[in-house]
Amino acid sequence: MEQEEALDWTIRTRDPDFRDWDAFTRWLEAAPGHAAAYDALMLADADLPALVPAEPLFAGTPANDRGAPASRWRWRWIGGGAIAAALVAALSIGMTNRADIYTVDTRPGEVRVIALDDGTRIEINGGSRLRLDHNDPRFAALDSGEASFTVTHDASDPFRVTVGDTVFEDAGTIFNIVRAGDATRIGVAEGEVIYNPDSDAISLPAGRALREDGRGLTIVSVAPESVASWRQGRLAYDNAPLADVTGDIARSLGIRIVGAPPLRFTGTILLDRDPQRFFARAAPLLGVTARHTRDGWILKERDGPQS
């Protein structure tokens, strides 16, 4: 039954018209095995287009009769026995050969909370991808986006987060990590984090932040309460590049922002799910004008002195 449900959700969420993300999230969180079964099928993602036809299985169905997404794909599951069998076989093979790593993805503007077996809590911001291990609650890998970690400390088995080639190790810690392109940012709100403990072993106590990019490392002081402030609906910065700020805004609000003037920003911005209302307040603070187009929000540096 669990495999059938996982297959049903796999097919449905691959539909470009799928909209029932709330129901899908409830299903994932209803039982521990749901996410594992779904992730295993998604690992066979490259094989699915060949197995699931783009056109309806029954030629008698009108071409313009799309129906409700849930009922349409359920009908495919019942009627497409050969497809279902092939996908279940793919699931069985994947479950046998795959590692115990699973992936959590969030859509732009979506937030997910993961509670690990060791008591650690991870809050994942929008537009992010995080990998975890079913058999190792002391491991995480942030591939892109942003996540906040409230770690249950164990000196004999430290929690480690891998970001690209970098490793961050906790020492009784609350911290926030952003991965955008080739740049990584971490801020520590409580306790301590060790940057690359097996090589550099740089200590980052509470109130410190590190940025790593193609130009090297930068370590600065930050207000601990500003770390992961997105969880409280605000973004706080101290002399931050505007490119970092706009990336954080886009991730949190689920919008596209085109370009960022070469400016820096110090201050706090309150988030608002209404982009028009948000930019009406935030654009003057950032020293930019904001215009919405079909390609996204275009930001340009304001002319003249700022009040």
Rank of each mutant, 00 (worst) to 15 (best):
L7R: 01
T13V: 07
T13M: 02
A23V: 04
R26Q: 01
L28P: 00
A30N: 04
G33Y: 12
H34R: 10
Y38K: 13
L41T: 03
F58N: 15
A59H: 13
A59R: 15
G60M: 07
N64P: 14
D65E: 13
A70V: 03
R76K: 08
A82W: 05
I83V: 13
A86T: 08
V88Y: 08
R98I: 06
I101K: 12
V104M: 05
D105E: 09
R107I: 04
E110Q: 10
E110V: 00
R112F: 01
A115K: 12
N125R: 03
S128L: 00
L130D: 02
L130K: 03
R131C: 06
A141H: 03
L142Q: 04
A147Q: 08
T150F: 06
T152V: 12
T152M: 10
A155M: 09
R160A: 06
V161A: 09
T162N: 11
D165H: 12
D165A: 07
V167K: 11
V167Y: 11
D170C: 03
D170V: 04
R185N: 10
R185K: 11
N196A: 09
P197V: 02
A201V: 10
A206K: 11
R208M: 00
A209W: 07
L210G: 04
D213P: 00
G216F: 00
P224E: 05
A236F: 01
A236W: 00
A236R: 02
A243V: 04
T246I: 03
D248N: 05
G259E: 05
A260N: 14
P262Y: 05
L263H: 02
G267M: 01
G267K: 01
Q276T: 15
R281I: 07
A283T: 09
T289C: 07
L299C: 00
Q306E: 13
